[in-house]
C-alpha cells in the first residue's frame, strides 16, 4: 500500500508538470494556431536563467552581478527563490514576445504546418546556446528544499511533489481567470476567426503577443519544476533530459486536444498515471516489454485514443463543410 501511495503521488506530481507544459502549448495554439516545437529549447533556456540568477549570482546576457542573490555558499530562502522565479518568468515572457515578433508575426496567414516548422527551426537554433550555457552536463537551480522529503505513515514523499502540484494549480487558476478576462475573450475570438475578430476591433497582434508571452512563461515554469530533485536530472537542468522531454508532453496535448485548457490538465494527469503506474507495476515483465518500456507508454496511449477520437478527448472537432 505504501508503494501504491508513493506511486500515485509521483504520478500526480509528474502529471502536474505535464499539465503546466500542456497549458503552455494550448495557450500558444489557441492564440496563434502555432504548435510550439521550440518549447524544449525555450524552457531549458529559462531554467538555465534560474540557475544563473540563483546559483551563479549573475544575470543572463549581462555582466552584472545579481544584487538580490543569496550570499556565496548559501541557498536562497523560499521567498527569495520565488522572487527569482518571478523574474525568470518575466524574462521568459520577454523571450516569447521577441520570438512572436521576429518569427511568428510575419507568418500570419501561412499554413499551420509552416508555422510549426518555424518553431522547429528556432528549437534547433537555440539549442546550441543552451549547451553553451551548461558547459558541463548539469546545473543546479538552487531549490530551497533540495532533496528533502516528508514521511507519512512509512511512505516517503519528496517536497518537490507538492511544489509541482501547487505550481500547476496556480498556473491553472491564472489561465482560468485570464480566460475570463477581456484578453482571454479576445483570444478566444481570435482563435475562432482571426479576420472576424479584427473586424470587431480586436487587436489581433496584441493577442498574439500575449499568447506567446504567457505560453513561454508557462513552458519555463514547467521546466523549472521538472529540474527539481526527484525527476530524471536530479535537481539540475540537464542537457540529457531537458531538450527532449518536451516531446513527452506532445501525447499530453494530443490526448487532451490541442485547443482545450481543461484537456491539457486532464491529459497531463492521465498520461502521467499511465506512465508511472506502468513503470511501477509492470516491471516484472521488463524482459518482454523491453527495457525502458514506460517511456513509450504515453505514445501508445495517444495512438489508442486517436484511433477512437481523432481530435483528442476534449479537442474541437473541425467541422468540414462541403
Amino acid at each position: 500500500m505504501i508503494i501504491f501511495w508513493q506511486t500515485l503521488a509521483k504520478a500526480i506530481a509528474l502529471g502536474s508538470i505535464y499539465a503546466i507544459m500542456g497549458l503552455s502549448f494550448v495557450i500558444i495554439f489557441k492564440g496563434t494556431q502555432v504548435l510550439n516545437f521550440a518549447a524544449g529549447a525555450l524552457s531549458m533556456a529559462g531554467a538555465l536563467f534560474m540557475s544563473i540568477l540563483v546559483v551563479d549570482r549573475g544575470f543572463p546576457f549581462l555582466p552584472f552581478t545579481n544584487p538580490l542573490a543569496p550570499a556565496d555558499g548559501e541557498t536562497a530562502g523560499l521567498a527569495l527563490w520565488i522572487v527569482h522565479l518571478v523574474i525568470v518568468l518575466m524574462i521568459a515572457a520577454l523571450m516569447g514576445l521577441v520570438i512572436e515578433r521576429v518569427a511568428i508575426r510575419p507568418m500570419v496567414g501561412q499554413p499551420l504546418f509552416a508555422m510549426a516548422v518555424i518553431t522547429l527551426g528556432l528549437e534547433i537554433a537555440i539549442r546550441p546556446f543552451n549547451l553553451d550555457a551548461t558547459a558541463i552536463s548539469g546545473r543546479s537551480i538552487g531549490v530551497p528544499w533540495g532533496t528533502e522529503t516528508w514521511e507519512i505513515g512509512g511512505a516517503i514523499f519528496p517536497k518537490s511533489y507538492l511544489a509541482a502540484v501547487v505550481a500547476a494549480a496556480i498556473a491553472f487558476v491564472a489561465v482560468f481567470f485570464f480566460y475570463r478576462s477581456r484578453f482571454g475573450v479576445a483570444m478566444r475570438a481570435v482563435a475562432f476567426d482571426q479576420e472576424a475578430a479584427m473586424a470587431q476591433g480586436i487587436n489581433v497582434g496584441r493577442v498574439f503577443a500575449i499568447a506567446w508571452a504567457l505560453g513561454a512563461a508557462l513552458a519555463v515554469l514547467g521546466a523549472i519544476f521538472f529540474a527539481m530533485s526527484p525527476w530524471p536530472p536530479a535537481g539540475t537542468v540537464s542537457l540529457e533530459i531537458h531538450p527532449i522531454w518536451v516531446f513527452r508532453v506532445l501525447p499530453v496535448i494530443i490526448l487532451g486536444g490541442l485547443d482545450s485548457v481543461a484537456g491539457a490538465v486532464a491529459g497531463g494527469l492521465i498520461i502521467a498515471i499511465f506512465e508511472i503506474f506502468a513503470g511501477q507495476y509492470l516491471s516484472q515483465w521488463t524482459s518482454i516489454l523491453g527495457p525502458g518500456y514506460s517511456t513509450i507508454v504515453p505514445y501508445l496511449v495517444m495512438l489508442v485514443v486517436l484511433l477512437v477520437r481523432p481530435y483528442g478527448l476534449f479537442g474541437t472537432e473541425e467541422i468540414r463543410r462541403v
Binding site: I3, T7, K10, S137, G138, P232, P233, S238, E240, I241, I244, W245, R248, E275, I276, A278, G279, Q280, L282, S283, Q284, T286, G290, P291, G292, Y293, S294, T295, I296, V297
Partner: peptide, 30 residues
C-alpha cells in the same frame, strides 16, 4: 540493460524492493 529510455520507474521500483545492500552501476551520470 534496463536503464534505458527516459522513464526509469521500473528499474527504481525493482531496485528498492530488492533489499540490496550494495549496488553496482554501469550507466551514464545522467
Amino acid at each position: 540493460g534496463e536503464v534505458a529510455g527516459d522513464d526509469r520507474t521500473a528499474v527504481i521500483s525493482q531496485l528498492v524492493e530488492s533489499g540490496a545492500t550494495m549496488v553496482w552501476t554501469t550507466v551514464t551520470p545522467g
